[in-house]
Amino acid sequence: MNDAFYVASGIAVLSTALAITRANGVHALLYLVISLLAVALVFYTLGAAFAAALEVIVYAGAIIVLMVFLVMMLNLGGAAAARETQWMKPRVWIGPAILGIVLEAEIVSILARGDAGVPSLAVILPRDVGIAMFGPYLLCVELASMLLLAALAGAYRLAYLERAEG
């Protein structure tokens, strides 16, 4: 199990790093899918089977598919990739990389101070998640539903205008 965790972690970090550096949109998305699947595996090793399934279905499935559609629709072809390459000069990496590394260092220093602990032996079943979600978190679920409704209406409205103007 531990080996699976290390391998999955390695794949996740690597594919994420590749995803943010690709010039071609479709390539980047494919690396992102791999990253998400690897994270799903990490979830599984952490004993969150239900979360892992959600990660695969919703993230890697629905969300990324949506983005693939978009990339195809916008037709980010060779010219766009060339421009991306032109935008990603080494110089522009300096600032963000420093920020990222500092963030990393800070949080690691915080984590290193305390004991993050070891996994508890209790197994969290999807049933427990469901009970918690529709028990104490019922209000949050309702709010989430409203958020989704608002997102739906908003996206529809923006896209509708797009068509009307076009």
């Binding site: 600032g95 963000p96 920020l99 500092v102 963030l103 800070e106 949080i107 220093s109 915080i110």
Partner: peptide, 16 residues
Amino acid sequence: AGWLAAGSLVTIAISV
């Protein structure tokens, strides 16, 4: 976004 991140870093740094 960069300044937001920098600000967060400073805040975290203070607590660190």
